[in-house]
Design a protein around this nucleic acid. Structure first.
Length: 638
DNA sequence: TTAGGGTTAG
């Protein structure tokens, strides 16, 4: 800005800018993004015939940085002699926007012209290699950089190489490059940490962060943002709070909104809504990304209503929702089964042309309709999508699997592959769920073979769990056990699937035994595991054990029982003749009992011939709403 | 006087 003011002052004093003045002015325009003034300088330069090598290069650089690649190319083509700097400027411009072919053409051309690519050229080449290239090619570029001895001398090249490897998920290679560098700075470390976070290897990201500090390199805001994201993803709230305090000490928090966004994301993702709101409310300036982050967090925590409230508020504050915001609002509508609001959003998105224009929005719409139970609408939106990706298909398959249309889910799974889309982890989990819902164990076995063939079972615990669960629910306990015993480290989901498997074939005492084995094994039970073991208790009528497990759940593990847990206990109490205790449970739990709960007691009161309890239940029912007829039974669904 | 690296919601 100061440069441009100086030039103005110069002109007032009657001094004409020369080529050097123009170079400085063009750079000032480039840095400040002052496009209009840059264009004016360009035409003045042309008029005055001041286009020398330096001015030309500054122009190429300016247009490249503006992303006006046609203009950059035109200036470049008009230069009588192009040096390495001209090539590098244009290469960087094309690389920034992902025009790989142009970058590689220029790279060849400069060498044919007898020019030697330098470190800066390779930074551009690496940027062009961020996506869409064979990793083998990247290894070749790496070899060439090493051969030229550029890695030891120039930190920029090393850092760009780390980043490029990371973007391909080649984290071992990226880490090796970092280790091999004679000097590393905060950017080298941050690039690697970002890579680990992006590919879900948060533990390694955190190790790198510690290593970096031991190396004497201080984190900056970019590093903090990455590490906060790691904490948020794996729910490492204590570490997150420590980082938050550290950021506060360094006083960098107020400067960057993106850092506050990462902190809000951390708290909301770890369920500390109060803290998230506190940080959010204190901010003087807010942007759409911050609002959307809060909305997304609310959705993930199951507060779709709060997310929709945000959606209204942010618009009142004058923000115009973008595709991300709409995706979050659609998620919230689905979660709340708010069909009316969802339909309203759909028509708005349709008017804006976003339904056809953005596959994420299309997918979110399919999901919203599915979650609202409007499967015909979901199918209709899906059919009209101009592009369908694996997420579109998986959303639809999941919709049918969830709504007891396992057969349709299976046929969609076939159609998806026929139309050339390969299933991913999420698709396989959905389709295995569909198989278990309709007892299609044969189809499940076919999928098992596919999964083995594609090597999924060696490393993918969620898929293995879905397989154990599918065999268990289909009553093929032996096959469920076969998969289970192959698992190097079964988790609570694997164990719970096995418990369900034993119950499915009526071996309820064995189910209890599995739970005890899991506990001895050191696997921490979750609410679903407790629901499964309480179901087994209620089926076998072992009241003492049931009370023991509930005590374990609330005492040792500090978990809050849900209505379903209480329903198991009510069933257990009443079926063992303790109707009074069951009734008092009903009166004392912090939930309104549903029809399943009522039936659990009513059935037993018939069995024990206690019409008095029956009457009391009936009276209680009269006072309760929400007692729709239900197909649900006591405990975990088998 | 001209070229270069990491972070920010689906």
């Amino acid at each position: 800005m100061i440069v441009l003011l100086c030039v103005k002052k110069m002109r007032k004093e009657g001094i004409s800018p020369d080529a050097t003045t123009f170079v400085c002015s063009l750079n000032a325009c480039t840095d400040s993004g002052n496009k209009q003034e840059g264009l004016e300088f360009h035409s003045e330069i042309e008029k005055k015939g001041l286009l020398n090598k330096f001015v030309g290069n500054a122009l190429v650089d300016m247009y490249s940085k503006y992303g006006s690649l046609l203009d950059a190319q035109n200036v470049f083509d008009s230069l009588p002699n192009r040096d390495v700097i001209a090539y590098n400027s244009l290469i960087s411009g094309y690389a920034e926007l992902g025009f790989r072919k142009e970058v590689f053409n220029l790279f060849d051309k400069m060498q044919h012209a007898g020019l030697f690519p330098n470190a800066i050229t390779f930074v551009g080449i690496l940027k062009a290699c961020r996506s869409g290239i064979d990793p083998m090619y990247l290894a070749g570029v790496h070899a060439e950089i090493s051969r030229k001895g550029l890695l030891g001398k120039n930190l920029y090249v090393g850092n760009a190489l780390i980043d490029t490897y990371c973007r391909h998920g080649l984290l071992v290679e990226a880490h090796e490059v970092l280790e091999s560098l004679p000097i590393r700075n905060v950017i080298s470390w941050t690039a690697l940490i970002a890579g680990y976070v992006e590919f879900g290897i948060e533990e390694k990201a955190l190790l790198c962060f510690d290593h970096m500090e031991l190396d004497g390199v201080s984190a900056n805001s970019a590093t903090f943002i990455c590490i906060l994201r790691a904490c948020s993803s794996i729910g490492l709230i204590i570490k997150g709070i420590i980082i938050h305090a550290e950021i506060g000490r360094q006083g960098v928090l107020e400067k960057e909104l993106s850092m506050s966004t990462a902190i809000v994301d951390l708290y909301v993702s770890c369920g500390l809504l109060g803290r998230a709101e506190e940080v959010f409310d204190k901010l003087q300036v807010r942007d759409l990304i911050l609002w959307t982050t809060l909305m997304d967090g609310y959705c993930k925590q199951g507060y779709g209503n709060k997310a929709l409230e945000c959606f209204r508020k942010l618009q009142l504050e004058g923000f115009c929702p973008n595709a991300y915001t709409y995706v979050c609002s659609l998620n919230a509508c689905g979660q709340q089964a708010a069909a009316a609001e969802g339909i309203q959003l759909h028509s708005k998105l349709h008017t804006k042309g976003l339904v056809q224009g953005d596959v994420f929005i299309g997918n979110a719409l399919v999901d919203m309709y599915a979650k609202c139970g409007l499967l015909t609408k979901a199918q209709e939106v899906f059919d009209n999508l101009p592009v369908r990706d694996v997420v579109s298909w998986t959303t639809l398959i999941s919709a049918y699997a969830e709504h007891k249309s396992g057969e349709i889910a299976l046929s969609m799974f076939e159609k998806m592959q026929y139309e050339g889309t390969s299933p991913n982890t999420a698709t396989y989990i959905c389709i295995l769920k569909a198989c278990s819902a309709i007892g299609a164990v044969d189809k499940g076995e076919d999928i098992h073979h596919d999964l083995t063939f594609h090597g999924y079972l060696d490393s993918n615990l969620p898929i293995c769990n879905a397989l154990v669960n599918m065999y268990a629910k289909c009553g093929s306990l032996g096959k469920a056990l076969d998969v289970f015993y192959q698992l190097p480290e079964p988790d609570v989901v694997s164990w719970t699937s096995l418990i369900v498997g034993y119950m499915k074939v009526g071996q309820n005492f064995s189910a209890l035994h599995v739970f005890d084995t899991m506990n001895r094994d050191g696997t921490i039970p979750d609410p679903v595991a407790f629901l499964s073991v309480l179901t087994a208790c209620s089926r076998t009528g072992v009241l003492d054990k049931g009370k023991e497990y509930l005590q374990l759940m609330t005492g040792e593990y500090g978990l809050k029982p849900t209505l379903k847990h209480h329903t198991c206990m009510a069933h257990l109490l009443s079926s063992t003749g303790h109707l009074d205790q069951a009734f008092s449970l009903m009166e004392n739990i912090p939930f309104r009992p549903d029809i399943v709960f009522m039936h659990a007691i009513l059935d037993a009161s018939k069995k024990w011939g206690d019409s008095n309890i029956g009457r009391r239940i009936f009276e209680h029912t009269q006072n309760s709403r929400n007692l729709y007829p239900s197909e649900a039974t006591v405990g975990i669904p088998l």
